[in-house]
Simulated scan of single mutants.
Amino acid sequence: MTTFWRRSALFAVAAGLAALPVQAELKYDNNSGGFVSIYGQFNPAFQMVDDGVGSTSNLVDNSHSNTRVGIWVNQPVGSGTFTFNFETALGLRASDGVSQTFTPKGVDWSRTNLRKVDFAYDSGTYGKFYLGQGSMATDGIADTDFSGTSLVLYNGIGDTAGSFTFRTSAGTASSVSISSVTSSFDGGRRGRVRYDSPDFSGFSVSLAAGEEILASYSNDKFYDVALRYANEFSGGKFTGGVGFSRRDRNGVDRDDTFGSFSVLLDSGFNVSMAVGSRDTGEDYVYGKLGYKGDWFAIGQTALGVDLYDGSNFNTSGSSTRVFGIGAVQNIDSVNMEAYLGLRSYEFSEVTTSYRDIESVLFGARWKF
C-alpha cells in the first residue's frame, strides 16, 4: 500500500469515528460566550477517464470538495462577533490535477493548499468585515445549487478531470484541457479585504479587493462586487446572485460578469441555472435539473442531470458542451455521502474537431 493510501486510510478511520453520533462534538466553550471548534472531511474517489484513444484510472481526492481540516474561533465582542477561520486541504492527489501524461504524488502539500486564514468581525448592525485569505465577494455566485448533487455535478466542470486534454479527430494529443474550455468565472479565494452588508428583505451586497498571495510569481490584483438574494415562498425556496469581477494583470484588465439561481420545491424537484460572459468574448450557459427523495431510511437521495454550453474558449468560434448525470446517497448515521457521476465532454474549433472525453467519478465523503 502506498504512503498516500496508508495516510488516507488512517484519516478515513479518524473521520469516520469523529462522525459517529456517539462521539462528542469537537467544540470547546470558554466562560465568555466564545468557542473553538475543529472540523474536517475526507473525500476519496475512483476516477476513470476515456479520451477516445485510451483510458486512465486513478484513486484521487475529489476536487469538487477536497479533503480538508479546519478550525473556527468565535468570540462575542461588544454587540458583534469576532471570528477566525483557518482551513487547509491536505494536498492529496486531486481529481483536477491528473491527466493522461501526469499523475501527481499521493500527498504533496504546498502553501497553495491553504484555503482560509481569515479574520472577520460581524457588527450585527452595519455588516460584516473580513481580512485575510478567504472568499472574494463573488465566490460561489456562479454555483448556486439546491440539488444536493454538487459532489459530482455543478458548475465547476473542471474539478472532475480538468487537466485531461482533448485529442484531435485523428487521435493526436492536443494542449486543450477540459478546464481551459469550461470556466464558470467564479470568484474563488484570495488574500483580500471584504465587506458584506446586512440583509435587507433577503438582499445583501458584498465588495472585495485582493491579491493572489499563495501562488509564486503572481502579482495579479482582483476587485469584485456581488448581489445575493434568498427567500422562501409557498411550496419552496429560492436563492441566487449576480456578480462582477475584474482581474488586473500588470495593468491589463479582464472583466467577468456572471450569476446563478436555484429553486427547490417542497416536492423535491429543483432547478439550477448559471450564465457568464468575459469581456474577451467567452461565454456560457449552465443548467441542472434535480430531484431529492426520501426513499431509504439511511438518508436522502439526490439525483441530477446537467448541461454546460460554452462558446469562444481557447479560440474564437469554438464550442464546448458537457453533459452530466449523477447521484448522491446520504448516510446520516455516519455523516457520509456516497456518490457516482458520469460526464461527457465535447469541444470543437472552427478549423479543428476533437474526440469526446468521458469520465466517471465514484466515491464517498465523510465529515466530522
Rank of each mutant, 00 (worst) to 15 (best):
G324W: 00
A14C: 13
M336F: 01
V107L: 01
D309G: 13
I38S: 02
R247C: 00
S179R: 14
G210F: 05
S197V: 08
L342M: 11
L114N: 10
Y130C: 06
A161T: 08
S234P: 05
V205F: 14
A120S: 15
R189S: 07
G70L: 11
G324P: 10
T315G: 13
Y126L: 06
N270D: 11
F35W: 07
D220S: 07
F146K: 09
G299M: 02
G162N: 11
V205C: 03
G293D: 06
Q47V: 12
F313K: 03
D356C: 00
G243T: 13
A161P: 01
G326W: 04
E282P: 00
G187K: 08
G290Y: 05
A226E: 12
A15S: 14
F203M: 08
F42C: 08
K237W: 01
A14M: 00
G148R: 08
I325D: 00
R228N: 15
Y28L: 02
D122Y: 01
T172W: 03
A142K: 05
T160Y: 04
K116P: 00
R6V: 02
N43V: 08
S135T: 15
R246Y: 02
G281W: 12
A230L: 12
S206E: 00
F164R: 05
F296L: 10
I357T: 10
Y229C: 09
R167P: 01
S37Y: 01
G290R: 05
L10W: 05
A142Y: 04
D306T: 08
Y195C: 06
G80E: 07
S169H: 02
S57F: 08
F42R: 14
Y39M: 01
L207R: 09
D283M: 15
S344M: 14
T168K: 01
G235F: 03
F347E: 03
R93H: 13
E337N: 13
A302L: 13
T83A: 13
G276T: 07
G310V: 06
V36M: 10
N74W: 04
N219M: 11
A170T: 15
P21T: 12
A18V: 13
V242E: 04
A208M: 06
F238E: 09
Y126A: 03
S150D: 03
Q75A: 14
G127L: 00
G162Q: 11
G191N: 11
W5P: 02
G259L: 05
F313A: 10
A12H: 05
T67W: 06
L151D: 07
N219R: 10
Y217R: 15
S110K: 11
T2G: 08
L59K: 02
F200I: 15
G156S: 14
T88R: 13
T160D: 06
A24G: 15
N270K: 00
I331Q: 03
S110G: 13
S260D: 09
A215D: 08
G243M: 11
P104L: 14
V193A: 15
V275C: 03
S272C: 12
F323Q: 01
A215I: 06
L20T: 14
G251W: 06
Y291V: 05
S319W: 00
R365Q: 03
S204W: 05
V73E: 00
G259Y: 12
G188C: 09
